[in-house]
């Protein structure tokens, strides 16, 4: 079973995302900020990460830069979940190692489609 780490400071969004991912046969884990997500990745590197942009303690972009510096950090497919579609933000995240983007609010169809695009379902 493939694993997904859902990183978001909103508990509601984490729960919604996990329910969708479970329905898509993913094993899920949650983290509420970038720092907790790094700890979770050191414990077990997931196959895919759903990553929020703005979070306390460590933002999504800072987490992503740290993740990609890790020796095993290139393994997860990172789907950035954003509320703004500013090309400058997108370019910055792509440069930091993001694989794809999902605009909030997302639904099952959108998550499934993006996972299919990156070859995970």
């Amino acid at each position: 079973m493939k694993t997904c780490l859902v990183v978001d400071d909103s508990r509601v969004i984490r729960k919604v995302a996990c329910r969708i991912l479970n329905e898509l046969s993913f094993e899920t884990e949650e983290a509420e900020n970038g720092a907790d997500a790094l700890v979770a990745c050191q414990r077990r590197m997931p196959d895919v990460i759903l990553l929020d942009w703005q979070m306390p303690q460590m933002t999504g972009i800072d987490f992503l830069k740290s993740l990609r510096r890790d020796s095993k950090g290139n393994h997860p497919v990172v789907l950035f979940c954003i509320t703004e579609n500013d090309p400058a933000h997108i370019s910055e995240a792509l440069g930091a190692g993001a694989d794809e983007f999902i605009l909030k609010p997302f639904d099952r169809g959108l998550i499934a489609a993006k996972l299919a695009e990156v070859g995970l379902v």
Binding site: N85, P87, I90, L94, A98, F101, L103, L110, A113
Partner: peptide, 18 residues
């Protein structure tokens, strides 16, 4: 919503203007 359906982000950034 429409560009999210099926369009990889790199194609969006390189082939569209916001």
């Amino acid at each position: 919503f429409e560009v999210q359906r099926g369009l990889p982000i790199r194609r969006l950034v390189s082939n569209f203007q916001q």
